[in-house]
Amino acid sequence: MNIRANNVSLSINGRRILSNVTLLAEGGKMTALTGKSGSGKTTLLNCLGLIHPIDSGKIFVDNNDVTGWRESQRTLFWKDHASFIYQDYGIIDDETVSFNVSLKKFGNNQGQIKEVLEIVGLQGREKDKALVLSGGEKQRLGIARAILKNASVIFADEPTASLDNSNRQLVVSLLKDCANRGAAIILATHDERLVAECDTVVRLGT
C-alpha cells in the first residue's frame, strides 16, 4: 500500500505546523519523518494516518484521494489496513498483553497471538498486564499487533525513543521484517541512526 501526500498544510491555533508537505511512502519500504522537536513529525504522521484533518492539500492511499473521507471510511481503513505504534498511548495499561495484541476480549486465535508474541520476543507474557511492561516491550507489543493484523501500513511514533541499544536494534529489525513482508512503514523519529536505515527520509522544518 502506498501513501502519498500532496502539498499538505496545517495550522493549529494560528501556528503553521505543516507547510506544503509532499511525500510518497511506498509499500515494502521504510519512510522516516524527521526534524527538530516541534517541527510537526507526529502531526504529519497523524495526518497521513487520517487521524488528524488537514487544512489544505491532498492525501492519497493507493492513488485514491482520501482527504475528505468520512469518519466511518477512516475507521474502516484503520480496521482493515493500518496499525499505529505509539510508546506513550498505544498500549492499554490495565489490559493484558494478549488483549493489547488482538484488541478483542473474545474470539481470539490464541495460537496466532502466541506466535506473534514469540516473533517480538514476548513469549509467555500473554496474561501479564501491559502496565508491567518496559518501554521496549511496549514498542514490541505494538509491532506484534501490526503483525497479527497483517497491516498494510504501519505508523510508528518515535519507536526507538528511550530504548536501550539491544531493545532498539530488536525494534528496528522487527519493523524491517514488516517492511519486507510488504507493509509501508512510516516513522516519526529524531533518531538519526534509525533515519539512516530508512529508504525514504522527509526532513521537516528545514
Binding site: 494516518g49 487521524i51 475507521t75 474502516l76 481503513f77 484503520w78 480496521k79 482493515d80 493500518a82 496499525s83 499505529f84 505509539y86 498511548y89 498505544g90 498500549i91 492499554i92 493489547n100 484488541l103 499487533r145 493484523k149
Partner: peptide
C-alpha cells in the same frame, strides 16, 4: 485512542 485507531467505533 488505541481501539479507535484499530478501527473500532
Amino acid at each position: 485512542f488505541t481501539l479507535h485507531t484499530a478501527g473500532i467505533k
